[in-house]
Amino acid sequence: MLIAVDAMGGDHAPEEICKGAIKACSEYEDLELALVGIPEAILPHVDNSGLVGRKLHIIPAEEVIGMDEAPALSIRKRKNSSLHVAMQMVKSKEACGCVSAGNTGAIVAGGVLIVGRIKGIDRPGLGVPLPALNRVTMLIDVGATVRCKPINLYQFALMGDVYMRTIQGVAEPSVALLSNGEEEIKGDELIQEARKLIKNAPVNFVGNVEGHDIPIGNADVVVCEGFTGNVLLKFIEGTGSAIYSLFKEELEKRFWSKVGMTFMIPMLKDLWVRFNYERTGGTPLLGVNGAVIKAHGRSKSEAVKSAIGVARNFVIKKGVEKIVEELSEGGI
């Protein structure tokens, strides 16, 4: 299995991307990776791995799409960029999928303009698995489609349901719509119209949920439009970092807290494992005709390895094919 990796995308590229690729190749025997980017920048980080030419293949691409560049324009104009070339490898079936920690908008634009949408899907959705009290909750969309129509939210609900069943193994995922209240009358016109559609969809729709329901785990799939989802996701990340910093600050002030901390270390390690985004690694761009995985822009080697694992798992479990099949059966 060959997966294309945008070696130049992300805050710590190419060094951490290359380290993550080496880790992934060491962990998965069936995996080969195409590191796409500037060869002179990539080679120093992989030359001594013993994997070049065997499990790691360097694919030249002399341009890089910056994190602050206009997404659609950059993906159209920079045809020799690492992201564009990686996407082309997916479109041509040379690669089974691609992974990038680069510009989110450019990844979405590349997924639509290069890889192409699944028939019947108007706009793609980024679905991120979030740890909750008693389950993993997929929040979709978290930034792929900002100005949504009701049909977009309906399609996100269908794709989220398929993903949780076929990839995450949840037998009958509950699907909810994010709103400003649980009552049916809550929400703006978009939410009201989307609710009518999802209510009649072939999914286990449980109605509206509010923001506080997500970490509690009141649904397996929570559907929202991309602007709200992106703000919510970053708020969750920021809250986690703030709590961690406050905890350290208070701990340093109190002697007995430091003593008690000795007994809490195993529990805190377990909690860190559950909530560490590096374990999840990547977010699938659902609705495009290929395995396209968006890794966190700050990804270091462990998160990159995990994102590649997400892509591999998505390909093995035929994620795209399952979505196509089930949407076709549903008449979309």
Rank of each mutant, 00 (worst) to 15 (best):
P44N: 13
K77L: 12
F227Y: 14
A201R: 04
V5E: 05
F205A: 11
K322Y: 00
A291N: 13
R78F: 06
F205R: 07
G238W: 08
A157Q: 06
E193Q: 15
K23T: 07
A295Q: 01
V273N: 14
G211W: 06
L178Q: 10
L197G: 02
D11M: 13
W256A: 09
L51I: 13
V170P: 01
E249H: 14
S49C: 11
C98W: 02
P60M: 14
R254V: 15
V310D: 01
A157V: 07
I198D: 03
T145K: 03
G260K: 09
A106L: 10
V108G: 07
C25F: 10
M261R: 01
L158D: 03
E252N: 15
E172T: 11
N289C: 03
S174G: 08
L139A: 06
M264S: 15
T283I: 15
L31E: 02
E210A: 12
I140P: 01
E325Y: 04
R279Y: 14
M159I: 09
A311F: 02
T280R: 10
G105Y: 03
A4M: 08
R135W: 07
E29A: 15
N289L: 06
V223S: 09
S179I: 03
C98Y: 02
R78C: 08
G330E: 07
K149T: 02
P215K: 14
K253C: 08
R117I: 05
Y154K: 11
L285W: 08
